[in-house]
């Protein structure tokens, strides 16, 4: 009995970088470190994609400075991605970047069968536009609500409060710390966080594992806003190497 003529397909996993390209990123080599970290992470991400053929890892990137704009607009298979350097200059239109991503996460063009996307926000400063409006627009989109949202703060001037609002709150649970933005204080720790997000997180998001839904019927026991992540080798507040930023 021949198998029917149906189309079976793996599931797209959208990975989006939201990169702060304000003028302050030019200081102390932060922009150079970010470009290098992302570029160096791509082989690892491609390897994870190869190891998880049931997920099709597609990468996009948004840069924000005076305005928000697509740096990589077309969802690009990670193995085909060639990272072009971001350039620093301008202020910090983070709210506009969130709106841009919100529009991209509408369905369509997002596929119904997609895995929850991964959004990584990287910033060294404070939003200079209406962050709250951008956040509100983002969280109105169901795919953004389902997304794995991570934030990396570069240096000690980064606005941890807005980054925390971006990733949402998850209280401490047994064996887990409350979720906080990752704080990179130098190029080494930034590279490690980017590597972690593009490999361990992508690997976890690629695996088809369900989780318990939130229900209004009782205590929120068991609710997990994000898919289970493998334990990071780094504590989010650890300094790795000398303080630079």
């Amino acid at each position: 009995m021949p198998f029917p003529d149906v189309k079976l397909a793996n599931r797209p996993l959208h990975f989006l970088y939201l990169c702060d390209c304000s003028g302050s990123m030019a200081a102390s080599g932060k922009m150079q470190a970010l470009n290098q970290a992302i570029r160096q992470s791509l082989p690892g991400m491609a390897a994870v994609a190869r190891d998880n053929p049931e997920a099709r890892v597609l990468v996009r990137a948004v840069s924000f400075a005076d305005q928000a704009a697509w740096h990589i607009e077309t969802p690009t298979p990670v193995e085909q991605l060639e990272w072009r350097d971001l350039q620093a200059g301008g202020i910090t239109a983070m709210g506009a970047a969130l709106k841009l991503v919100a529009a991209a996460l509408q369905s369509p063009p997002m596929e119904v069968r997609a895995l929850p996307p991964v959004l990584v926000l990287i910033s060294d400063g404070q939003p200079t536009d209406d962050f709250a409006a951008g956040m509100e627009a983002l969280l109105r989109v169901p795919w953004a609500q389902k997304a794995v949202r991570l934030a990396i703060a570069l240096g000690h001037d980064a606005d941890l409060e807005v980054l925390q609002r971006f990733i949402g709150s998850e209280p401490a649970a047994a064996g887990r710390s409350p979720r906080r933005p990752l704080q990179a204080s130098n190029a080494t720790s930034l590279a490690q966080y980017i590597q972690w997000a593009s490999t361990a997180v992508v690997g976890a998001a690629s695996m088809p594992a369900s989780r318990v839904s939130e229900i209004p019927l009782g205590p929120a026991a068991g609710n997990i806003p994000l898919p289970d992540l493998p334990p990071t080798v780094l504590d989010p507040t650890d300094d790795v190497g000398p303080l630079v930023w």
Binding site: L115, P116, P142, Q145, K146, P208, A209, S210, R211, V212, S213, E214, I215, P216, L217, G218, P219, A221, G222, P227
Partner: peptide
């Protein structure tokens, strides 16, 4: 179920699962 989106789903391990 409205809260069962993405990879989330209703489960026997939830409180008052029978109501679901």
């Amino acid at each position: 179920e409205p809260t069962a989106t993405g990879e989330a789903t209703c489960s026997l391990c939830q409180p008052r699962a029978a109501a679901l």
